[in-house]
Simulated scan of single mutants.
Amino acid sequence: MVLSSMKRLIPPLYYEDAYQDGCLAVLEAIRCFDPSQGIYFSKYVQMKVNYCFLEKGRFYKGAAPEPPLSLDAPVTDAQDAGTLADCIADTAPPAADTLIWQETLRCLYPLIKALPEKYRLVIEAHYFKGLSLAQIARQQGLSPNTVSTWHRRGLNFLRENLTDSD
């Protein structure tokens, strides 16, 4: 029944988009369904999906969409031109940096666990969760000066113990 309404309301060119919209309508129906209303779930879903197709159907009219652009397409007509995929920046850190970071964490982990709890919370929140000292202060209900002091003392503890373990 639902597919027939899709085929009746949506041009074949847009079936894939309409199918995705229909799936979203089903998920929305699941989220919003209230059994106390006395409506069968299957009828409720059918009504939601049909309404989705009625609403979306008018947006599927008009010119056909452009075909998707392949990342394997050459950038220019030149023989040795790269592809569009070559133009995408790689934001991942170099593998060597990742290995160094993992080794550093392996060495620091026992020291961080050995920190007094108040210092450890500030160090973990700042360096591993990316929170600023002001955000940590607001979150913990502390003054910014207190958090700054705990941060400095935590770093000093790590520095002293890291040099002792070398």
Rank of each mutant, 00 (worst) to 15 (best):
L133D: 01
T91I: 14
L105Q: 08
G38P: 12
F59G: 02
S165F: 08
L3A: 08
H151Q: 10
R159F: 09
Y109N: 10
I10L: 00
L133R: 09
T149W: 01
R138Y: 00
P11Y: 09
A134C: 10
N156F: 03
S70M: 14
N50G: 02
L158Y: 10
Q79C: 10
P74N: 03
R8V: 03
A64L: 04
C32P: 00
Q46G: 13
D90A: 12
I10K: 00
E103H: 14
K61W: 04
F41M: 02
H151D: 03
A85C: 05
G130C: 06
P94D: 15
S148L: 07
L71E: 08
A29V: 07
Y51T: 13
R152Q: 14
S132Q: 10
Y40E: 09
L13V: 10
P74S: 04
Y60K: 07
L3V: 11
A134L: 09
C52N: 01
Q139R: 11
L162E: 03
A89I: 14
N50I: 13
F53S: 01
S36C: 04
N145E: 06
K48G: 01
P12Y: 00
N145T: 12
Q20Y: 08
N156R: 11
S148P: 06
K118S: 12
A29Y: 00
Y127L: 10
E103Y: 07
P74L: 05
I39W: 08
A134P: 02
Y119K: 07
K118V: 07
V75C: 14
F157G: 03
P67W: 13
E16Q: 12
